[in-house]
Amino acid sequence: MNQRRFFFIIALVAAIIIGVIGIISMPVQQQQIAGWLVSITMQMATPLVLAGIGGMYSERGGVVNIGLEGIMLMGAFTGAAVTYYFDNPWLGILGSVAAGGLLAAVHGVICVKYKGNHIVSGTGVILFGTGFTTLMLEVVWHQKGRGELITNTIPDIIIPQIQSHPFFGPAFSVISPVVVFMFVLTAISWYILYRTPFGLRLRASGEDPSTLDSAGVSVEWIRVVGVIISGCLAGLGGAYLSIGFGSAFAKEMTAGRGFIALAAMIFGNWTPTGILGAGLFFGFLDGLNYFIQIYFPALLPFSNYIAMLPFLLVVVALGLIRKSVPPKAIAKPYEKEKRA
């Protein structure tokens, strides 16, 4: 198993190196296009991966979190509102993480403490998040549909040394810290999940809670913490949409990305690296859609087919290569065994 993983990593690194060499040996115009595709892939993947990894923390602990969409909206809204009032995007990020965590905590407490149905509660979170943010949008900005433009968004990291390079320039020279954080988070999450006691406990509470309980660890706490982490990350993903990539909050601006994040989580088989891969894959397919529309104008009448191609590819890929195995004790409330 380990050996297989090792070879896989070697193959991946080799593929990336070969790909990059291939790209930089192409003509300048093509290099620019490739650079744009790479940057769009990363940008579109970021909210998906953040929310997806968040969902993983929740589901690995045994709590289904289909409320990611609502939590992302909450994060996007709070991030924008706090930035608008305090004129500081970092405070905005803090606010979005807190708001996402708070809404997720409600979900977690309902599911874990009050033994509510996870999907019912998650649906409630989605509805509440959508409605509440739209309502508050009017309160904060006195406008309908879309809030005021936020001028002070999360500053991009600019690397001037590579700015003029035809491939690395468009791909990496202007990069949002949140995008960088996405990669860091994947590594951290992998470490937390597989190399720390908390990760072990989290996985145990999703796979076999009674063992965890008999070891003297509170299953409830571990699960609630997992859900709260998921909310924080999903909130951050939402904030990236409103104050990182975009620059205003608009109603229902996540446009179903919470559900796609859910799909990315399952596609990535509930592992951080898998989710990163799935998120990047979805992001790339998004970019591919735009790429075909822009560079193949003769296909204009078939733009709908181009747009649906990514979705079909996912179905085919899932049907051909991957078997999804969710955590065993997922969505099952844990009742302590009564002591006689």
Binding site: G70, V106, I110, C111, K113, Y114, K115, G116, N117, V120, S121, T123, G124, V125, I126, L127, F128, G129, T130, G131, F132, T134, L135, K251
Partner: peptide, 19 residues
Amino acid sequence: EMVKVIQGLIVLFIAAPRI
């Protein structure tokens, strides 16, 4: 959207009869 908020709250509360 207020209707959505009400719907969401009802569903949330119904999710947890123990509250």
